[in-house]
Design a protein around this nucleic acid. Structure first.
Lengths: 166, 166
DNA sequence: TGCAGATATTTTAGGCTTAAACTATCTCCA
DNA sequence: TGGAGATAGTTTAAGCCTAAAATATCTGCA
């Protein structure tokens, strides 16, 4: 349906590649800034890290059933290896526990009571930080941004690794 | 970059905090996806990494004057320690060289001829990847996104760490 | 039934990052 | 002039990430 490449486009001034590049750099800068600040807060106020928070968040949503590590891996967009390490640490801290499963290859984990409590406090704080960071965006702007980011995400998903080859 | 967790999604009557959270998660997801794909390309086609490319890119813009490591650190938004390590590796590969400076605390570096050549090839490829990844965004959408990201960046900068305290 | 291939996780090796402590050098002013 | 404090960079300890190899277990089919 759609060409996998864009022809040279001299119509509007800057060529397409440059414009995409500028969008990407701004996107990256914003993401880095937020991440850095949030990570600092998590460290200072909860003595924890963002990946650990993300892990707990996934389990919080999953409820008492818990989740297999592979599922967590897919949700967090990180490799199995990374998840294994996080799970080890969180278990050592008593925030998660392992469940018995029929398939013994699978390691299904869920929050402990302590884990739930800790996560609730962190999530509340986290929401406040994000709200403060994005406070200058008007409601309409936020909606617009969200829509454009959705379109961006779809563009990224459509572009398979093979198409990118060159 | 870090993976996203997804908050419960209550469309419509969501309070501000939730909307900011959703914007942030989409932003993070997009940034992570691009970063992952670009990193894979750099590894497969040039046997290098994104941070190294970013370092070379900063030096390329700087020209024959080069840059002090501290300046690079500020441009890349990473700590001095990270920059020291990257510089060590790039120098070992013959891509950068150190310049004499009056202030002997300062280590000013610039691209070698080899570094310039390698960077040029990588930059060309990089631009193509980014263009392909964002290809589905119409010209107007890209402009709009850029504007909104600028506003976002300003909101982030306005929000000092102190204000974030809770 | 039994084995080949699929699947889930862990391990390993190597790179990046941070914060904080440390070294070297410079600047300023009493 | 000489030392206190600022500044630039390096080192260290610890955490996260990846890709790829290794383990363990399961499943399907001849």
């Amino acid at each position: 349906m759609e060409a996998a490449f864009s022809p040279p486009d001299k119509l509007g001034g800057a060529p397409d590649g440059k414009r995409s590049l500028r969008v990407w750099l701004r996107l990256l800068t914003c993401a880095s800034m937020v991440e850095r600040r949030v990570a600092a807060r998590f460290r200072d106020e909860f003595d924890t890290t963002l990946p650990r928070f993300d892990f707990l968040s996934a389990l919080d949503r999953a409820g008492p059933e818990g989740l297999p590590l592979g599922e967590v891996s897919r949700m967090l967009l990180v490799t199995n290896g990374a998840v294994t390490g996080l799970a080890t640490g969180l278990k050592a801290d008593g925030l998660i526990e392992t469940l018995e499963t029929a398939d013994r290859r699978v390691r299904r984990v869920r929050l402990t009571a302590l884990g739930r409590a800790r996560f609730a406090a962190m999530a509340r704080a986290h929401e406040g930080w994000i709200e403060a960071l994005f406070a200058d965006l008007a409601e309409g702007e936020a909606e617009q941004l969200m829509t454009l980011l959705d379109r961006t995400k779809r563009s990224l998903q459509r572009t398979t690794p093979e198409e990118l080859a060159g």
